[in-house]
Amino acid sequence: MYVGVDLGGTNIAVGLVDENSILKYHKSTPTRAERGSKEVIKDIIKLINETIRDYGINKETVKAIGIGVPGIAEPNSGEVIYCVNLGWNNVPLKQDLEKELNIPVFVDNDATVAGLAEYKIGTMRNCESGVFITLGTGVGGGIVINGKVRSGFNGIGSEIGHMIVGENFYPCNCGRNGCLETFTSSTALINYTRKLISEGNETSIVKKTKGSLEEINGRIIFEAAKEGDYVANKAVDRLVKYLAIGITNIINIIDPEIIALGGGLSGAGDFLLVKVQEEVERVRYMKMIPIGKIVLATLGNEAGIIGAAALGM
């Protein structure tokens, strides 16, 4: 058995995964990151021990522990270099866990390990090369080539969300302007929708949120877009435009067999997928040559745990 840990800004999820990458049991607890890294790590250790105990197996049967973190980790040392959602800098996560649990620990970016899960048993299963793009609060990426994640020499590869694709009306959290995630994340979609409303454009979104712009979310925007709302469709079309630019750049550099879209916005399903497929086909380079498939990811919230466990396989 293998343990997978999905460490997020809101929750810590821990699961037991068998050698066939099937999630057998899992549980979670709030992260409460404001307490600092030492307290969060104590909770990770506690939750791992509880998960093993509750499932009824001996600790010795766990071959490895994998952890997906919402930031950058050095792949060999397992040190979390930078993680803005947790407020972590240079945290020796692998070292601390191995000292307490006496089990090998592997650490990588959360979107990267989710991509590995999609490669193992999801929509990218057994492909020669695949790229997973998560469209959530931010935009993350996971690149898998010949069954191995590509994190880069220093662990900062696959940062698809910080590819520059244009000039935007607000800066990215990283401090630069024009990052893909400022155009194609749920945050970006909401920000642009609010901008359009503040400029006086009429929209059913105001009614759906009872006049509170703070209540706007991706689900409401896509719901309004499907109903033909002008503002919602303008916001969605802008997201699609820049996502297609990002995907085209990925195709030009990697030429993957499959590109899988995951994260909260992928819940819009075929409504989003078809728009993206059509826009990529419109703007892509060398149209005489076929490109890989653009599809929806299939594992949902389980991808983080399964992919983290797969690091140890």
Results as ranks from 00 to 15, higher is better:
residue 141 G to D: 01
residue 23 L to Q: 06
residue 2 Y to V: 08
residue 169 F to M: 11
residue 88 W to G: 01
residue 272 L to T: 11
residue 152 G to M: 04
residue 265 L to S: 06
residue 1 M to C: 09
residue 88 W to S: 01
residue 8 G to Y: 08
residue 124 M to Q: 10
residue 284 R to W: 09
residue 282 R to S: 15
residue 114 A to I: 09
residue 33 A to L: 06
residue 95 Q to I: 15
residue 31 T to D: 01
residue 311 L to R: 05
residue 273 L to T: 06
residue 309 A to Y: 05
residue 52 I to D: 05
residue 117 A to D: 13
residue 8 G to T: 08
residue 116 L to S: 14
residue 206 V to F: 07
residue 204 S to T: 15
residue 220 I to L: 11
residue 313 M to D: 09
residue 237 D to P: 04
residue 192 Y to I: 01
residue 253 I to R: 08
residue 11 N to H: 12
residue 312 G to R: 01
residue 12 I to V: 10
residue 298 T to F: 04
residue 84 V to M: 05
residue 266 S to A: 14
residue 131 V to M: 00
residue 25 Y to I: 12
residue 196 L to M: 12
residue 165 V to W: 03
residue 175 G to N: 11
residue 218 G to Q: 12
residue 24 K to V: 14
residue 127 C to M: 15
residue 12 I to A: 06
residue 107 V to K: 03
residue 155 G to A: 10
residue 264 G to Y: 02
residue 96 D to S: 13
residue 15 G to S: 09
residue 236 V to I: 14
residue 226 K to D: 00
residue 160 I to A: 07
residue 50 E to S: 15
residue 135 L to Q: 05
residue 212 S to D: 13
residue 115 G to Q: 10
residue 180 L to T: 01
residue 56 G to D: 10
residue 201 N to E: 13
residue 75 P to I: 00
residue 288 M to Q: 05
residue 300 G to P: 06
residue 38 K to G: 08
residue 99 K to A: 03
residue 308 A to V: 14
residue 47 L to D: 03
residue 200 G to D: 13
residue 261 L to Y: 08
residue 157 G to I: 00
residue 80 V to Q: 01
residue 250 I to E: 06
residue 95 Q to P: 06
residue 212 S to W: 01
residue 286 M to W: 08
residue 49 N to A: 07
residue 199 E to I: 13
residue 53 R to C: 00
residue 182 T to I: 12
residue 146 N to R: 14
residue 55 Y to C: 02
residue 97 L to W: 04
residue 138 G to T: 15
residue 262 G to D: 03
residue 293 K to Q: 11
residue 86 L to M: 15
residue 75 P to E: 00
residue 92 P to E: 03
residue 288 M to H: 10
residue 71 G to H: 12
residue 96 D to F: 13
residue 31 T to K: 04
residue 45 I to V: 07
residue 277 Q to A: 07
residue 102 N to W: 02
